[in-house]
Design a protein around this nucleic acid. Sequence first.
DNA 1: CTAGGGTTAG
Length: 644
Amino acid sequence: MRSLFFIIIKCASSKSELETATTMMKRTDFVLHAFIKRRGNFFTNSFLLHSENPYSSFQLGLRFGPRKASIHSNVSSNRSVFEKITNMNDALNLFDEMLQRRPLPSVVKFNQLLTVVTKLKHFSCSLDLFKQMCSIGVPVDSCSMNIAINCCCQLSRTSDSFVVLGFCFRRAIAPDVCTFNTILNGLVLEDRIVEAEKLFKKLIKQKLCEPDVVMYSTMIKGLCKLGNNVTAVALLRLMEQKNCKPDIVTYSTIIDSLCKDKLIDDAFNLFKEMVFDKGAVPDVITYNSIICGLCKLGRRDEASKMLKEMEDANISPNVQTYSILVDAFCKEGKVEEAEAVINIMVKRGKVPDIVTYSSLIDGYCLRGEMINAKSTFDSLTLRGLVPNVVTYNSLLNGYCKNLNMEKAMTMFHEMSRKGLKPNVVTYNTMLQGFFRVGWCGAARKLFDEMHAQGQMPNECTFGIILEGLCNNHQVEEALSLFKLMSDSKLNSDIFVYTILIDGAGKSGKVDIARNLFHDLSDKGLQPNVRTYSVMISGFCRGGLLGDAKLLFLKMDESGCPPNNVTYCVLLQGYIKNEHYDDVETLLQEMDGKGYSLDASTVSMLLDQIAAKSLDRSMLTLIGKLVPEELIDDPSLFRLGDKLK
DNA sequence: CTAGGGTTAG
């Protein structure tokens, strides 16, 4: 019998055998840690001591003051004492008391406390307590180990799991299926899905444990994260074949992934299979995934129907369910409706959380209602809610979009003062704001700061910088930055190309734009509607209407038909270059396709009619192409008036 | 008795 436990215990006495065992797990860092440990100092050295965590201290008593008698009297009575703990002070006081009891409480009691601390998301602290339990002589078991390993994983330090594992091997604690599930989940959380897959296969091949429904579900989650729904479903079928019954979590994982990929019909099919064939009852999480999927597809009516369906099935919506709807309304600009949803949820006894309000704040920001956004933000404290990075980012985005960089900077500094670390989204938002108001120097300084703070720029960051440079008459700079990045994936990103083609075109460098456009096919990149529109706009601006028309015609051939924007761009090109004869044909084409004009194109057309460059008879056609929301537009109304 | 997998915001 080659059980992993047996091998590891054997290994502890010889380096080469330990290496054999660990190579089996392909974790060389594990070997390293295990041997540091044997020199007696690995534990303090390699365990996580996160300085930002106020609870991560050995001198807990000193820091948190006198103990509470109510907890002290109750340690061994029943589990209700653990249920009562809602904050870290109580948890740590209880831990201190437990340590002083003689005999020591059982490991189960300690595990219950670790569970509470972990549920409070104080992972470093939980690890710290585990560490103390070990050094004080509590006979930790596999359950304690699994909690500790889970804490490593939740801190995105899955590799440290192997440190804990190594430490526990020495105490004759063997990993079980739960341990492996936790580690696999950690790898999936860190997007190390290929490693997870290798470990999964190894566990099965070497019969180190029998995979259960949790393990399959974890692997399915990994496959979904890779965007591989097909393989995820294949694994679902495989587990059925192996007599492992998929449950509500397994199904919900795939259903959620399908929803996120907008494959709502496939999601519903799986949903039906789950309910009718497998008799599994969907729960609030399953419904939340579907409701969210429908909202993201703009099918909010159906989402509301699902909400009713779940209520009829006696599955009560939770805070998340309502938050999803709040967010959907806000994204449509319907903040009043979002507020109505919040009122309903409050009536039903659900307390809106920071996610709910962050969505609402974002909704106000999108509408440019910064006073409402800020007052909602300020009201959070009264509600006992603490704004987080996402909340701040929404507000910053609002100020930046409204070109109020002073306020944005104030809030940016406030978030740092409150101990929140700006992340890549924060920096991207601020950078974009600075470029918009033309503060290129400030942008540059912030980019340096971002680097100094250890925040890695992403594709979005570079897109923002290139666009910012282009819009601030620094196309040459953008181009040379682009060339500098020729090895990165940003150089093979169609969005970035589109930005540069647009920038080059707008600054009159049509040839550069054209060359960039031609580069696309060499790189195997497919231009999208935006890319074509931007190139056509560049041609028009340079007076190259022939090229513009040719490219416009090429779009259909390339399977990328022109949209509203493309038509408007070409129309404006015709007008600016006084090619009035082509205007009517284009308008008729638009009418045939059910397209509509945008505000600036309508006003240009009306101007030309007023100037008699275009015939009045075209007004009927134009009228048909003006979208409803523009009919009452005051600026157009005045223009239309002029014609009478 | 205690441990592992699925849902929401930028």
